[in-house]
Every structure is written in C-alpha cells, then in structure tokens.
Amino acid sequence: MSESPSPTPQAAATPQAAAATPQAPALRARGLGFRFRSRAGARWALRDCEFALPAGRITALVGPNGAGKTTLFHLATDLLRPTEGAVEVFGHTAGTPEARGGVAFLAQDKPLYPRYTVEETLRLVSRLNKRWDHKGAEDIVRAGDIPLSARVGTLSGGERTRVALALAMGRRPGLLLLDEPLADLDPLVREEFMGTLMAEVLDRELSVVLSSHVLPDIEHSCDYVLLLKDGHIHLAGDADELRATHTLIKGRADHPVPDHVVHARTSGRQLTALVRTGGSGTVPGDWATESPTLEDVLLGHLRAHATADASAAGTAPSTAEGAAA
C-alpha cells in the first residue's frame, strides 16, 4: 500500500503511529552507560551500549541475572538517568514528554494496590493518563475472566500480571516494555498471557521488548534479540537471521575444531558445538550438522559468556535461575 496523496478517512486508524517519526527505531541506545553508586563503590551496570530496535518488532531481552536488563528498562522509562550516552524512544530522548507518552513499562514486581478492586484500579490509572483507552484495558481484563469487582489482593499471579498488562495497554503506548512478565506464571497461564500480548501487537501496531529467562517461550514469539552480557551488548539481531547464521555441529572430539565456535563441549569422544557460519550453513570437516533453534543460539552465547566469566576469575558466581521460585 502506498501513501495516499489526498487525506482519506481510513488514515485515522492508528493514532500512536502518527506521532512517532515513521522510520525511527522503537528503542535506541547511543553510547549508553549507567554507573551505580553505593557504599561498596561505583559499578557500571551498563556501558558502551549501542543498538537500535526496529519498530513493530517483538524483541527478547536476554542475559544472566545482573546483566543490566532492568537497568536498561529503567533508563528507557526515565526512572534512571544515563551516566553517559543517551536512550531514545521513537527518536525522542527518554524523559521528554514525547518519549514518556510513547512507552509503557510493566515492572517485574507489578506494583498494584491490593485493597482496590480491579475496576477502581483501572479508574485510578485512567485519571492519571490523558490518552486513556478504557475499553481496551477492560477487554484485556475480561479476556482473562477476571471480575472487575474482585480485589487485586485476591487475584492469582497470572491475573495480577494481566491487570498490569491492561494498565500498561490502557496508556496506548507505541512501545511496551515488560520485565520478566512470565517469571511467576505457570506454563498454561504463560501461554495464555503471551497469546493476549501477541493479539495486542497485531491489533495496535505495538513494538515490544520483553526480558525473559524462559527461552522456549520466546522461541516463536520474539522476532528480534538483544543479549546483554556484563552490561554490554553481546548479540543483537533478527531472530531468523541468527538462526540462519549459526549451525550446531556434532562429531569426534579429536578432530580439529572449526573456526568461529561460539561454544563447544565434549563428552567422551564426542564434541558438540555452536558455530557461527555467516549464512553459508557449511562447516568444513567431518561434522554432522543441524540448524539450531533460537534457544540453541541464545544458550550457546550465554554459555560462552559463562565460560569467559569463569576464566576471568574473581567474579562472584551468578545466582542460579529459579532460586527465588
């Protein structure tokens, strides 16, 4: 479809798209860095981050605990100010009214008042927002069979996540940031929640960045990936492209290891490795090859990171995932 030269009635369909610069990335970092100060001294949580997440995509933000994921979200929503560099939402510097209006953030702890009913919560938040979409927010709550009269404190984890999503979507954001939205949900509710989120993306031309440890859940939901390692961007790109430019190989451990191995491990005489092939898909040598899933690619890069850490020595062992569960 081409741009129509004369104004047509159907052009009014997407109010939030009109405000944003059409080609601006949904989220962009330029030389972004943030340094925490504490009694123990200063520590860089993020440093030299340079990336541009295209609009209209669902980006998975992946990385070990403490890699800087939440800090990145806080910088994008102006809850923290960069120590150096800048972060932009649809071309607007974080903290400007344009950027604030364009982004909604669903925090991991979902701050909600337990004594309020769902309806009271929706009304309270609606008063704080000029462009509030009450019907849209209510529809999300209804799709989860949550009674509007229920008190928030009596809801299950999955229901609270859904209410938090409704509050975020009611603000009509162009970019939705979700910090570990699936962490405390059972598999069935996770699937339901992701289904609702995907339908919202389709209906509203929404861009999404979601951080998650649940790699299988992002396999087919996310089409872009940002992998953080020790406060630095380790990997960024289109999910299909990442799958296509990596290969899993299997073979004898005493064979010479090919170039561009991301991560390899041996068990007995067998070597298994993730290799960056740059698109050719071929690996010289006597190897059985297999095309990797996105999870394989991400795990390979996460493990490569873990090995590098261990050899660096002196770093505290990272908290095991799921320890809090």
């Binding site: 209209g56 995509r57 669902i58 699937e191 339901e192 992701m194 289904g195 609702t196 989120l197 995907m198 339908a199 993306v201 389709l202 209906d203 859940d217 087919h220 939901s221 996310c222 089409d223």
Partner: peptide, 15 residues
C-alpha cells in the same frame, strides 16, 4: 484469522 492464531498459539503475528 491471524488474531485467532496468535491468541491460540502465542506466536509472533508477523509469522
């Protein structure tokens, strides 16, 4: 519809 599929499968709408 695409909406029905993404709601039921939770896969990316572009897919």
């Amino acid at each position: 519809t695409a909406r029905e599929v993404v709601e039921a499968t939770a896969i990316n709408p572009n897919t």
